[in-house]
């Protein structure tokens, strides 16, 4: 068993604050870059991305795997980053919306969402797009109904579902 590092400071407290206690060393590879972090074992991958790494494109909507706003890719597969501890991801390849594409070099799914107006408020959108980008590599059937089912883990309260489906089908038809 890897030695239990908990309950012993992983490094001397930098600023004398208690915040540094009970932290674990972990190196995360996010969007191709390795980052060494000291984190609380309770920190979810979602909170680590948002609050520690300041990658706020990934959103929190429910914190319980019930909405999909926090969807990221771990080793190429879509997962809910709210339901996994960051310390469990040493060595994993993590991709967030920031790593998928930027304005000027958008991923085809991002470009299709823009073109098809596949969002309104935009808050669930990073999760929808990460889900859709992963779906392209999954054994998903060809029909709209197949896409709707495969995208049902991403709630859009604005109800932009018709445009989300057409954006995804547009990208799939180009491949």
């Amino acid at each position: 068993m890897r030695p239990t590092e908990v309950f012993a400071p992983a490094e001397p407290p930098a600023d004398g604050q208690s915040a540094r206690k009970n932290q674990l060393a972990v190196t995360l590879r996010v969007n191709g870059e390795s980052v060494a972090l000291q984190i609380d074992p309770r920190t979810t991958l979602l909170d680590c991305l948002r609050e520690t790494m300041r990658l706020t494109g990934t959103k929190k909507g429910c914190d319980h795997g019930q909405c999909g706003a926090c969807t990221v890719h771990v080793n190429g597969r879509r997962v809910n980053s709210c339901l996994t501890f960051a310390v469990m991801h040493q060595g994993d390849d993590i991709t967030t919306i920031e790593g998928l594409g930027r304005p000027g070099s958008l991923h085809p799914v991002q470009a299709a969402f823009l073109e098809h107006d596949a969002y309104q408020c935009g808050y669930c959108t990073p999760g929808q797009i990460m889900s859709a980008a992963a779906l392209l590599e999954e054994p998903c059937g060809a029909t709209d109904a197949d896409v709707k089912e495969a995208m049902s883990g991403n709630i859009c309260r604005c109800g932009a579902y018709p445009n989300i489906v057409s954006a995804i089908q547009d990208v799939r038809s180009e491949r």
Binding site: G57, K59, P103, L106, A111, F113
Partner: peptide, 16 residues
């Protein structure tokens, strides 16, 4: 739209 599809659009809880 480009800000929304790339995760750049800044919502309240994104501020730090």
């Amino acid at each position: 739209g480009p800000l929304k599809v790339s995760g750049i659009a800044t919502y309240t809880s994104d501020f730090n």
